[in-house]
């Protein structure tokens, strides 16, 4: 499994490099100065860096959960198209799972008991976050830039819903801590490796209990603490036919599903009584 991943990884890496080179060559052959200048102009006037400076691929682009699913390796490749050979690049790859509302509860003493007495609600929280970078994100960009661009776990957690209670940073911190312990949130400052000064690779093992749904991958490249280019990719984690069929039938035909389970229980119980019959 791991070996196969490495082989496909290497193949894709080559593909990414080839793509980067072939994309760069015709552009420079036809009109070299405008291609370079357009990129620079876009980056300067809008604050929205040109995506075409960055080529990215993702492998695999769809993750199917089968009955033996126990996690899956995911690899992102990126190639930066740039004529400026002197620039030093940093890359941050952010993987975000489907968003949902999360209620954080705190147990408090109530007489001799400990009960969930206090809670805060957060909406739009990704069910999974992985922030991979070639070095600590705090070294890559300033706190303000990271906050603005949603780089790092903390910047990805919106403030609580102002439904009840004061804004309590403890709850926000607890949410991050709990999800990190479950390995659903993670930051890896060594998750991105530059295989050449312009080509990088990010690898991550999605855990077995990874939430189902649509995932976003954001690849951001920085130079000297400023955003240089950004690309978004998506992939989906879904159940395979059998798993999906079971989950769907449980929801859509609950009576039939219940009857099948009841029949299974009675049948197995009866079989056991026949097998182990002693009289």
């Amino acid at each position: 499994m791991r070996a196969r991943g490495a082989i496909t990884g290497a193949a894709l890496l080559l593909a990414a490099i080839a793509a980067a080179v072939s994309a760069a060559t015709p552009a420079s052959a036809q009109t070299p100065p405008p291609a370079a200048s357009t990129g620079a102009a876009n980056g300067a006037n809008s604050g929205q860096p040109p995506a075409q400076k960055l080529v990215t691929t993702l492998s695999p682009s769809k993750i199917l959960i089968q009955s033996n699913f126990a996690g899956q390796a995911l690899t992102v490749f990126g190639a930066i198209e740039d004529n400026d050979r002197s620039a030093n690049y940093d890359a941050v790859v952010t993987i975000k799972g489907p968003r949902g509302a999360v209620t954080v509860r705190r147990k408090q003493r109530w007489g001799p008991f400990w009960f969930n007495l206090d809670n805060r609600k957060y909406i739009g929280i990704p069910a999974y976050i992985a922030v991979l970078s070639n070095r600590d994100v705090r070294e890559i960009a300033s706190a303000a830039v990271r906050e603005d661009l949603h780089i790092g776990i903390n910047a990805l957690i919106p403030q609580q819903v102002a439904r009840r209670g004061a804004n309590d940073p403890e709850f926000r911190a607890a949410l991050q801590r709990l999800r990190r312990e479950q390995e659903l949130f993670q930051e890896d400052p060594e998750g991105v490796t530059f295989v050449s000064p312009r080509v990088f690779q990010a690898s991550i093992n999605l855990p077995g209990r990874v939430p189902l749904g649509k995932y976003e991958v954001e690849v951001a490249v920085f130079t000297d603490g400023a955003l240089e280019a950004r690309r978004n990719l998506t992939f989906e984690v879904s159940k395979t036919d059998l798993e999906q069929a079971i989950a769907t039938s449980a929801r859509e035909y609950p009576i039939g599903y219940g009857l099948v389970i009841i029949f299974m229980a009675l049948l197995l119980g009866w079989i056991a009584s026949v097998i182990f019959r002693r009289d």
Partner: peptide
């Protein structure tokens, strides 16, 4: 040991 717990209530898939 850990007084906090977090539960996801609605997901958008």
């Amino acid at each position: 040991v850990e007084p906090f717990s977090a539960t996801m209530t609605d997901t958008f898939r």
